[in-house]
Design a protein around this nucleic acid. Structure first.
Lengths: 185, 185
DNA sequence: GTCTATAATAGGATAGAC
DNA sequence: GTCTATCCTATTATAGAC
């Protein structure tokens, strides 16, 4: 097996970080290549084109959410408040505090008008995120109200990420986090 | 006075619409020129460069907010709930339902990591937006709680715009709108 | 799997005629 | 104030050697 300088997984991870910060359109293949320490042309060995790379990034993020985060909602050992706490803390590591905020939210706003290819997976991500929260809130509320709470929490968090980036001040996202738990108290 | 094919104001307005939808980075001068029905080179008669055009757009949006929307908070003829209703309805026309969502929020997320020049005005916009809401909520709540409510409402709305764009479904933003009023009931 | 070289195009921006 | 022509650079992507 030949030596791999930078594996597809490493490339994916580093590209994810960079695109989360700079956005899809403003991040050139040259810049990504420098960050990943490979030649720009080498991307086309791993991925068909830039669009394909972005699809792989989005799939990867969705997959990590499904396998490592959403399952918290089903953890029978935890109380509802603990579930919310654990789920959002895991989200924070992958999505909120990491420089650049939420890749999925950013990508929606950046590409919704000109890149339909990303839309399906982005819709699936937020559908599953809202659904995980809804299942937790259903322990205490009707299905209908649990859904509204879940939507409200996602909106509060995504807006909070934006304000936190704007003012370089985590408190907006932290307060949204606390409000998400407060609904259960 | 010579005939003006497309005035600076018209250019500004059409460019605003296009950039709100496509984002700053992905909207080329050529595309903007087609939309405005002028030659690409003609932008450089009105504006120093693309950055300068964007600054003018942001200034213009901020200015319209200050002169036509924020003043609702000071309208002594209105009850607090009516103020929220009127202010957010005005916001909706300019920021929320218009295709592409909220230019200011989009621009924060798109450029916060690589374009410090826009940051000051974007911060000012959201500071004044939050402050206008806070002044309304202060009719019923302490200053501290009014501020938290105002922040929460802005976050809820901005997140709601994202979900509304993602699912092509206004209900997320409408529900955020109703929650903003519900706080006063 | 990784490199160099390069094609092809699109991008921002300027010069200068009218 | 508006146009044509054009420059320069960056960008995506491919070809082909090793």
């Amino acid at each position: 097996m030949p030596t791999v300088k930078t594996s597809r997984e490493e490339v994916l991870e580093k590209a994810t970080r960079m695109i989360r910060q700079r956005g899809y359109a403003y991040t050139s293949m040259k810049l990504l290549a420098e960050e990943c320490d490979i030649q720009p042309s080498h991307f086309y060995y791993y991925f068909k084109d830039k669009e394909d790379l972005m699809m792989a990034i989005i799939e990867n993020v969705l997959n990590r959410f499904q396998t490592h985060i959403a399952i918290v909602a089903e953890d029978t050992a935890l109380e509802p408040v603990e579930k919310i706490d654990k789920l959002l803390k895991k989200m924070a590591k992958s999505f909120f505090y990491t420089e650049g905020g939420c890749l999925m939210g950013n990508t929606v706003l950046e590409t919704v008008y000109w890149q339909p290819r990303f839309l399906g997976l982005l819709q699936q991500f937020f559908r599953e995120f809202i659904d995980a929260l809804k299942r937790i809130y259903q322990a205490k509320f009707t299905e209908k109200y649990a859904l509204e709470l879940a939507e409200q929490v996602v909106q509060d968090l995504e807006g909070g990420i934006m304000l936190s980036l704007l003012y370089k001040d985590d408190s907006y996202i932290i307060k949204a986090f606390l409000r998400a738990k407060k609904h259960l108290l």
